[in-house]
Nucleic acid binder design. Structure first.
Lengths: 230, 230
DNA sequence: GAGCGTTATATCTATGACGAAACAACGGTC
DNA sequence: GACCGTTGTTTCGTCATAGATATAACGCTC
């Protein structure tokens, strides 16, 4: 059963959710200088766009400046806040897209110690520090490829010298080259390997190849556990 | 203008998007053993729930097993695939939640070199390697707090010994303690500091305090740039 | 064979979101 | 004062989604 991860991103204030359609509207206003032309460009009704803009401004503050009459008949321009909102929305989407696209290794485990939202999870690979759910000890730990850093085993930093708390010795089981990003699978003693996403430069400089010994590290604060079924 | 980041997560197959309401339905079925009782529990209509379940199974394959008649009148149970879909959805949500919650530093810059989707961005702090958008050199680089690792300046790994390509020397400007997660702000020579989210253990072992020198590193493959307005 | 409580199916209703169209008002230009 | 093309406002229609209700059918138990 194959399924793609998706999302609808939003920024929320006062029960109003600023989403992709809203960002598209503001971008079209920015490009055309007119709410009328922007609606046309997007194939949307002028009256709805106008109403929506009012709702957004009630929640988020002034996003546009509008003038009536004049040589072109009037116009609409984005405020600095309007541009900032669109920029922030784009960054948020980029972040979610990273989550949707990145590879994830899932390790079953049991929480054995907690300090606030952090915990120690006992897994096949050993103890993993992660952000853990409050109500259960039965969890699965997600390790994202873009959160795993690889180190030369002979030169990996001492525990007192780095803030990355999870460190495992392992063996490279696969090296899969993309355009500029390389996916490296590392067996750290769990049932399935974890992935690390590296640049080609890193692969060369670390001399990563199948069968090589390597140290994989990832931050506790970037590792999340979710409840696991009985 | 204050706004909270939000999202609607989904897993998609055959133009059907499995979302939070669907996950809630499957969880309620799991808890009650009955589609009828699950709908009641969720305050939803039985016929809609039934129809939706059919749509989901057409797209994702068998998610439940249903029996009619018998001692209790019949019932509905989740299949292994049904449970796996819910578990995968929960992991996806946890990932998006991490994005929504984490602090982000934004650095303006210009792309000066590209290799596929990776690029070098010239910023106030120096060159940053990141995943860059294809159509523009004017970008802003987002550096997420949960992606930044701190190192002892005297003991940070050599460039040939780690896959984290971005490394900056900086000074700690703030240490802000949460329950178990500590937010450390580091001035790396950009207009605004970047944040690193650390465990309390890391803060102690690294002896992180305001004014201290520190090395901050983050992976190129975990760093994204988005287009920046003129 | 009735009873039970479920699954399965059919039909109806309400609501929110959205597109569409029409018209009033604006204000600089000619 | 007319013209232009915009903003601003009003009204209408359609569609998708969802809730609600009713009924048929199932199959084990008594």
């Amino acid at each position: 059963m194959d399924a793609d991860a998706g999302f609808d991103a939003s920024l929320r204030a006062d029960d109003v959710a600023f989403g992709a359609r809203d960002a598209a509207l503001l971008r079209a206003i920015d490009a055309t200088g007119s709410l009328n032309a922007a609606s046309d460009r997007l194939g949307r009704s002028y009256s709805r766009a106008h109403e929506r803009l009012d709702d957004l401004e009630n929640a988020f503050g002034p996003l546009v400046e509008r003038t009536r009459g004049g040589p072109g008949g009037g116009g609409t321009t984005l405020t600095d806040d309007g541009r900032a909102l669109v920029a922030r929305f784009e960054r948020l989407r980029a972040g979610y897209a990273a989550i949707a696209e990145t590879t994830v290794a899932v390790l079953d485990g049991t929480v054995t110690d907690r300090t606030g939202e952090l915990g120690v999870v006992d897994t096949e690979a050993g103890a993993i520090r992660a952000l853990v759910p409050p109500d259960t000890d039965r969890v699965e730990v997600s390790v994202r490829g873009d959160a795993v850093t690889l180190h030369d085993p002979d030169a990996s930093p001492a525990a007192d010298a780095t803030s990355a708390r999870n460190r495992f010795e392992g063996v490279v089981t696969a090296v899969e080259r993309g355009d500029a990003v390389v996916r490296v699978a590392v067996d750290i003693g769990a049932g399935t390997p974890i992935d690390a996403l590296l640049t080609a430069t890193s692969v060369e400089r670390l001399d990563v190849e199948e069968g090589a010994s390597i140290v994989a590290s990832f931050k506790a604060t970037a590792t999340r556990a979710t409840p696991r079924e009985a």
